[in-house]
Amino acid sequence: MDFGAIFQAAFALMVGLDPAFLAIVGLSLRVTLTAVLIAALIGLPLGAALALARFPGRAVVIVCLNALMGLPPVVAGLVVFLLLSRSGPLGPLGLLFTPTAMIVAQVILVVPIVIALTRQIVEDLWAEYRDHLRSVGLEGLRAIPTLLWDGRFALATALLAGFGRASAEVGAVLIVGGNIAGYTRTMTTAITLETSKGDLPLALGLGLVLIALTLAINAIAFGASRIGARYAG
């Protein structure tokens, strides 16, 4: 394998700003960031509620969620595929092989991560804050906004973990998106395609670009939370 060719391919992709390539990067970011945003809207409050609630079967729920963090993307993809297929229960929506379907699949992959990590973070914070919050009258649901806000830097890490899972996976988006050129082709499905075409330098070049993007987003998030933490202690 010629490593010079790989870096050349990656460099050409990044510098060339080929519209088709930019569309792929744009779609990848759009799908994954939307999925993470939706997963955050669902997962943060649910995770916090799970941290504070005590009910029979809570341990079972927690174990299940932790296990779902390892849900194979292909399985999530297959479930969404069967739901959204024209012959499936949600077929009339006509969402299969669209970016929306890819977002749905990634939300399913990311939500368990967000819930499970949020529960852990909020539970630890609650153990520390409990006496004071209860003293000022914040119990149950009313404690959640405070805990989510004060845990925001740790929670950002949970969202980054979700972002990592979503941006790196190929199994789910390939099945529900169909890897349609110019419409549902993402970085990872393009890598799969180029690999199958035997264009390994291009595939790896795309991989390098994906890594660079992920690195940039992590660096931005890390820097932001560092600066934020300095002002919030």
């Binding site: 297929s85 024209r86 012959s87 499936g88 077929g91 299969l96 092989f97 169909g178 890897n179 349609i180 050129a181 419409y183 549902t184």
Partner: peptide
């Protein structure tokens, strides 16, 4: 008309048609 191509093995491609996808 834009043509959106899902590329699969022949068996799977036929099934995609069977399901109406």
């Amino acid at each position: 008309i834009e043509v959106r191509v899902i590329s699969q093995g022949t068996g799977q491609a036929l099934d995609t048609g069977r399901r109406g996808d």
